[in-house]
Amino acid sequence: MKIILIFSAAYLLGSIPSGVWIGKKMYGKDIREFGSGNSGTTNTFRVLGFKAGILVLLADVLKGTLAASLPYFFNSDLNPMVVGIGAIVGHTFPIFAQFKGGKAVATSAGVLLAYNPPFFIVSVSIFLIILYFSRMVSFSSMLALFFITPSSLITHDWILTTIAGMLTVFIVYRHKDNIKRIRLGTESKVPFGFRYKKTKKDS
């Protein structure tokens, strides 16, 4: 019974549609009707701007961190990384948003933060370096995962490596539309980074 309760709580935490709620309450917009139509952090940055994007990013990371911390709260022996999968599923298929959610990158990062903070720092560093040079969040997320999965082998934690590998496949699949845009050269880029030149449109 406790296991069901923990996983249910993790799923419900993940299901909180941060981007949708913040967009509607603070900006009067449903971000699913703009940009890529996704309710996650990247589309929030694209549609609502930097401030809203940061709020959604922090909220989505926090969801994963709280979900992965549930075993500690319930005094359970369940692996936090495994429980965190509940939040990732919730973020991707949220019951509070007609089961249409984001791509779970930020929530996955939050799970990792609760499970292994040092490795989280390494992973975020890899992501930021790639983002600086590519200026594409989608590309950076996918490529970072390709580096993170084999890098996790140094921790000798088979659960972390296995789940990281599964997430790599899952998140790449969720980014299939982004991959098409990257190939066509039409993928959105962040307004900073290597060779970025500010234009009047960015002012």
Rank of each mutant, 00 (worst) to 15 (best):
S141N: 07
T161L: 14
L167C: 01
Y173V: 01
P150Q: 06
F146I: 05
T186S: 13
T161M: 14
V124A: 12
F170D: 02
T161N: 11
W158P: 01
E187I: 01
F127N: 05
T186I: 09
I148V: 15
S151E: 09
P118L: 00
I171A: 05
F192K: 10
G185Q: 06
S140K: 11
V122F: 12
Y115I: 00
T161K: 07
S108P: 05
F147Q: 05
T149A: 13
I182G: 03
L153S: 09
G165N: 02
I129T: 14
S141P: 07
S188V: 13
K176L: 02
P150I: 06
S141V: 07
L160V: 10
A106Y: 02
R135K: 11
P191C: 08
I129D: 04
D177H: 10
I182N: 01
S141E: 11
S125G: 15
L143C: 06
G110A: 03
T162L: 12
Y196N: 11
I154Q: 09
T161G: 11
T186V: 08
I126V: 15
A114Y: 00
L112D: 00
K189C: 05
F139D: 00
V172T: 11
P150C: 07
S123T: 15
T168C: 07
F192D: 12
T107E: 02
K197D: 04
L145R: 01
S140A: 15
Y173H: 05
Y132Q: 01
S141I: 08
I154T: 09
S188A: 14
T149H: 02
K180D: 13
R195T: 10
F120C: 04
S108I: 05
S151K: 03
T107F: 09
F147H: 04
L160N: 10
F139N: 01
R174Q: 15
V169T: 01
L131Q: 08
R183P: 00
T155K: 15
R183E: 01
F170L: 13
F192N: 10
L143E: 06
F119K: 14
T162M: 07
L112C: 03
A144D: 07
F147Y: 11
L167G: 03
I159M: 08
G193H: 11
F127R: 12
F192T: 07
V137M: 15
Y115A: 06
S108H: 03
I148A: 09
T186A: 07
V111K: 00
S141F: 10
L184M: 13
I129Y: 07
A109H: 02
M136T: 05
S188Q: 12
I126M: 14
W158S: 12
L145T: 08
S151D: 03
P191R: 09
L160R: 05
A164M: 11
A106S: 04
I179V: 15
A164V: 01
T186P: 04
L160F: 14
G110C: 03
G110F: 00
I154E: 06
R174P: 10
N178T: 12
A109D: 11
R181E: 08
T155E: 15
R174H: 13
W158L: 14
N178R: 03
R195K: 14
P191H: 06
N178H: 06
S141H: 07
G185L: 00
N178D: 07
F139E: 03
P118S: 00
A109S: 13
V124M: 13
V172G: 00
Y115E: 02
A109V: 09
P150S: 08
L160T: 06
P150K: 05
N178F: 09
P117Q: 08
I130M: 02
S152F: 08
M166A: 15
H156E: 13
Y132A: 01
